[in-house]
Nucleic acid binder design. Structure first.
Length: 474
RNA sequence: GGUUCCGUGGCGGAAUGGCUACGCAGAGGACUGCAAAUCCUUGUAUGGGGGUUCGAUUCCCUCCGGAACCUCCA
């Protein structure tokens, strides 16, 4: 079975053929580090991590290069720096913002079970390359200087818009594109803009300034992967304008007919049926979900979040809800219980691997895992190996399950604090049961339930004596 | 207005030109004083209308409904 991927460029699934099997190259647009990553940002990180693992599995771990950039030059970062560190020199404040956000991002994606990419370049490390590429574009007649900016001239590229299926004329018909007086075309976009003395800036042939958003990815991908590479990924919303513009810049600068052969885009995530937004109050950072009670009144571990993501196909929308997370948690814990200790590999039927090879069909992989589960329960080794392989290939063996520890600790704290009280009530209830005073017995059960304690009546198998077990219900 | 995509049971979701998987929830039963837990059994779906076909949920057309993008939001 060969790897097949849906290619946004052609709008169909294609067999993946790498340019160089000894070095498969993938670039994914990473975060702009101005605020903590939210649950929507987690999706591309997870999806492309699964692809990365699959590529490593298929071509060998040393034969895949995965680049995920860090955008640390951006006007939103500047705004955040001014807001959070008033009075501090801007450049210093910016460093605070980007470092803090970057550190948290690394922690978040690690907890979600994502392997570190081969390289995580930062935009600020590549300013020189950006200036060079812009200079090339100007020299080749694809960019021009106007109104203190350097702009890409979209009319200079014949098939601009091929990725998104957009034609320049159609866009203009929409009449919602901002028209700036100094632009030749409304669709022209900024490559370089001048900075005021307070703003961050770098020297360039066009004065002290800073790069536009799109040029960063063109330069960083070129630096680490070359002019043409295999896979370029990101969220659905990046197709236009970001990826369209990256393609324009890279192809025009290098004179190539493609930038990347396969373009992949993950679908969006909604929270409880609504688009996630701060105004609706359904905006959750990864950090909040894992470390607080903000969503559903309890923390959710990285592996549960990862499972909940992978239960849907990456191109489908996901509705993120509490029942979904519960289902994910239940599913995962039953697989883990049986397969986590097992050594993956073994030559089993490879059905799960084939599902993943078919454009990352993770929901099918879960389905297969469910059907294999019963065989694994019966102790069949091939089934246990297949489940273990599934957990490894999807990164579920690596994601943190820290919240189990947190919840267990909570339960323990509760138990220690309430042990005497609960025991007293239980013996009272046992007496009532022996006296067949069901009313009183049920009342006590209700009281305990109200405290969050659920009970289980059992018989001692040896003596046949009545006993009651209890635990804290979450 | 333009571009792209999606409609399968209560929910999540797979697959297929020929009884529509699987999981969760639900229902019934066993057990229990009653519950819980556990075990056994089980009902329910391809948005509407055309077309191609022996046969369409699958392919084509159309309608309805929904989403994303056209605004430096993954």
């Amino acid at each position: 079975m060969t790897l097949r991927l849906y290619n946004t460029l052609t709008r169909q699934k294609e067999v993946f053929v790498p340019i160089d099997p000894s070095n498969v190259r993938m670039y994914v647009c990473g975060p702009t580090v101005y605020d903590f990553a939210h649950i929507g940002n987690a999706r591309p990180a997870i999806v492309f991590d699964v692809l990365y693992r699959l590529l490593r599995h298929t071509y060998g771990a040393d034969h895949v290069t995965y680049v995920r950039n860090i955008t640390d030059v951006d006007d939103k970062i500047n705004a955040r720096a001014l807001r959070d560190y008033p009075g501090m020199p801007l450049n210093e404040a910016i460093r605070h913002v980007t470092e803090k956000t970057y550190d948290q991002y690394q922690k978040d994606v690690t907890a979600l079970g994502c392997l570190p990419p081969t390289v995580q370049p930062r935009a600020t490390e590549h300013i020189k390359g950006m200036v060079e590429m812009i200079r090339t574009l100007v020299g080749r007649g694809h960019a021009y200087e106007a109104g203190g900016e350097v702009l890409f001239d979209v009319s200079s590229m014949k098939d601009y818009g091929a990725l998104s299926g957009r034609k320049l004329e159609d866009q203009m018909a929409g009449a919602r594109v901002a028209v700036d007086a100094h632009k030749k075309n409304p669709g022209d976009f900024v490559l370089w803009k001048q900075s005021s003395p307070e703003e961050p800036g770098w020297e360039s042939p066009w004065g002290r300034g800073r790069p536009g958003w799109h040029i960063e990815c063109s330069v960083m991908s070129k630096a680490h992967l070359g002019e043409v590479f295999d896979i370029h990924g990101g969220g659905l919303d990046l197709i236009f304008p970001h990826h369209e513009n990256e393609i324009a810049q890279s192809r025009c600068a290098h004179g190539t007919s493609v930038m990347a052969n396969y373009w992949m885009h993950n679908g969006f995530l909604q929270v409880e049926g609504q688009k996630m937004s701060k105004s609706l109050g359904n905006f959750y950072s990864i950090h909040e979900l894992m470390g607080t009670d903000a969503f559903g009144g309890r923390p959710w571990s990285g592996d549960v979040l990862r499972t909940a993501m992978l239960m849907s196909h990456y191109r489908q929308p996901i509705d993120f809800t509490v029942p979904r997370l519960r289902e994910a948690e239940a599913k995962l814990s039953k697989y883990r219980e049986i397969a986590l200790g097992a050594v993956g590999g073994g030559d089993s039927f490879n059905r799960i691997e084939n599902a993943l090879l078919d454009d990352l069909n993770t929901p099918l992989a879960f389905t297969l895992a469910d059907s294999i589960y019963n065989d694994a329960l019966d102790g069949k080794n091939w089934a246990i190996a297949e489940l273990a392989k599934f957990l490894n290939l999807t990164g579920l063996a690596d994601a943190t399950s820290q919240n189990e520890a947190i919840l267990a600790q909570r339960d323990l704290d509760f138990s220690l604090a309430n042990d005497d009280l609960v025991e007293a009530k239980l013996s009272e209830r046992l007496a009532a049961r022996k006296a067949k005073d069901w009313k009183k017995s049920d009342e006590i059960r209700d009281q305990l339930a109200a405290m969050g304690v659920s009970i289980k009546d059992v018989k001692d198998p040896a003596s046949g004596e009545l006993k009651t077990e209890w635990e804290v219900k979450r």
